[in-house]
Design a protein around this nucleic acid. Structure first.
Lengths: 239, 239, 239, 239
DNA sequence: AATGAATGAGCGTTCATTCAT
DNA sequence: TATGAATGAACGCTCATTCAT
């Protein structure tokens, strides 16, 4: 069913833009003049592209090596710029890291609440969530951001708070609405989920971590597992 | 109920020794010749204590800073030895890290299979597992090892494999036995769990990560969540 | 007496133009073709103004930070031009520095010899010198040039030689004439001054350095000190 | 006369030790345990020697290039140590610089007041001061320290204050005593010197600066100039 | 065995200089 | 002519590792 993009799916998918997009569009090095919506000059376009290239490269390097071990020179090389160029766009290594995380998260932020406002049967919603998670998280670089936050969150409290405030707490609030409604409608029996919506997301976390840490020698069928989880919660497939 | 250590509990708890124990017995610096089982000389005892002190210190530093950012000098200081002393017991930083992880995991390994051989009602077993996890993982440094493996696993494939082979795959196998039996006995309806025992452990992972990353400003009642999860799986507390 | 600008004073003061004046007239960026004396086009005027702005800014930055630590970007910012523009007028940082020093010194050069040709009583001349030094050196940016030459002279032998040749040796020669005449006339007893006219200027150096280094927390009344010095040389104010 | 070291001379010369001596003798890297006067271990001796070697090398490099342009690697090379070794003894480049200045000044500090307590005819004292200045300042590295303070004082206010407080203000106070006594005894006519003892020292400053900046191509006979200055103040050699 | 001073490769960051626009 | 983004050599500083004591 999720194969044929329903209206719901497409709405849920609107968190799409996977490539890191700086909050400020016309990424003028260091001084991003947000001058409304205007046609960008060639230079502005090039600048924005460069910033994105750096962010993309940074994501790859940070994912592969972690914050401390990642070398800015490698980021530069991968982005096809000189070492110094990074500093035209970011104050320092830490700022690059934090902006990276934020820029990957920001597009998500705006679309989270849609969950709650979408009025569809819970099982359909659940199926779709699984689908979106697989397509938008597990098979994209967003899973790497999640891992980075797990790995470095303790060392970057500001980032952890940002992620918690802008993403997790909203997701949880939205899920609570959805779950409450499902319970009210008799679509879901487990009221405990309302208190701990984390239980709904837990398998996603397992999938992300498992496949990144053990995936090479023991891959896990994330989609199947997520579906199984939903089935359990909905008493489906039990026989 | 778990308050009064039942026979089961105590067996499960026997994975106790939380302090890192060197895999090699006598811990002769560098050339650990395990010369049969012999009463250790005073020097050997002192040496083993030193190694343990270093491992304990290393765990704390690695947990706090991650592998790359942790400073061996800080480890030494915390362990009360000189920087050079570390190299009498470990080849290099990486070896220290790997031995640390292994030494923390090893005691666990031996006791995992007990799960499968313990023949108790599933719901009792499940409750006990929750209890043990909280006491032996979430409130001890073992949670830090889990986080370290999540954070550094990609950079240390050997460690990831070790952990997968010696811990996870065994735990999963044991859980499968237990879960199969529970299904067979009609104690559990969700056969899907047999295919994905990870779903049983997922909330533990969430608890570990959540409290370490967001715990300071948004603590999560891990025990309550784990219990809620069990209740859901067992259809308890629902109605 | 020096209060009412006598003819002497005004002549001494003619070393006035404090703003740096480019040695090259029309200041055509880089290729300063001095095309005879012609009315400068609007563009040439603007160009000359720009060069001056850069020199003024450079003086401030070099004075504040020294040659090595001064940042060309700051010079540009202060001059209100882009970084690259500096290179339209100067070959590199060092050339900017040397031209700066030369341009500040050049106007002085032309007027030094006037000392010798002015035929006034020594004590009047001496008083005026004090006055001019205070007004034209100590309270202007020329003191900064002196400090810069002291600080950087060793690293810029060409500059040191230039300063010595074009300024110091001339001043000294002129002073010798003046001093000799004063001795001959019986206005001055200390023949040794003729050999070491530096002794006449020494207090000026002290004033410049003292006030720039210790001035903030222990200011020195330069004028009073210079006057005291003259009084000593002239045996005034003693009894 | 100054040729035959009189008692006075030797007293004045007691500011001798020219090689930089760290305030704390047994220069244990970073943690200088000042444990009274004790025989230093071989290691302590070697450590102190190293610190001195670094300071000496630093003086040379800083003198030659100025603070900003001096390269720590060159300091290390000159001192015969590795780059990192410097950081065992000094926190950073700035600390090295400040400690250098202080260590060169400290031995001076203790001996300044002797001027005032020495009760000899002023002209003898003056001659001796000239002599000591030439031997202990102009022909040693102390002149470099003076130049460094002139050059970098503005950028290192703490150093400027230290120098002013510990050296200059004391010298000036001591000179005032001496000068006052000379005036009282009728040995000196110029009372103005009491207000501005700087006038006594001004030629020394000129000599230091002149010879370091123009010395190569136009050396100045500092001793002769200083003597001439004294002669002027004392009305000697006039007729 | 234990120490900790010493090393030097390595990395983050700066900034003079260049050059496409 | 003027700009300022881009470059990359250079340098301060760190820290894993070694080794004389």
């Amino acid at each position: 069913m999720p194969e044929k993009p329903s209206r719901l799916t497409s709405r849920l998918e609107s968190l799409r833009p996977e490539t890191p997009v700086a909050a400020s569009q016309g990424a003028k090095p260091k001084a991003a003049k947000a001058r409304g919506t205007r046609t960008q000059s060639a230079r502005e376009v090039r600048s924005a592209a460069r910033k994105e290239a750096i962010l993309t490269a940074a994501l790859e390097e940070f994912s592969a090596s972690g914050f401390a071990a990642a070398r800015l020179e490698d980021v530069a090389k991968r982005a096809g710029v000189a070492k110094g160029t990074i500093y035209l766009y970011f104050d320092d290594k830490e700022a690059l890291f934090q902006e990276l995380a934020r820029s990957m998260l920001s597009p998500v932020v705006g679309h989270i609440e849609t969950f709650a406002t979408t009025d569809v049967p819970f099982r359909m919603l659940a199926d779709n969530i699984v689908d979106v998670m697989v397509r938008e998280v597990l098979t994209t670089r967003r899973k790497d951001i999640i891992r980075l936050i797990i790995s470095e969150g303790t060392r970057f409290p500001a980032l952890a708070e940002f992620y918690h405030r802008e993403v997790l707490s909203r997701v949880i609030a939205a899920l609570r609405v959805v779950l409450q409604r499902a319970v009210d409608r008799g679509e879901l029996r487990h009221k405990a989920l309302i208190e701990f919506p984390q239980l709904l997301g837990a398998p996603l976390l397992v999938a992300v971590i498992w496949n990144s840490v053990f995936g090479t020698f023991s891959p896990l069928d994330a989609r199947a597992m997520l579906k199984a989880h939903i089935d359990i919660l909905l008493d489906r497939g039990g026989a």
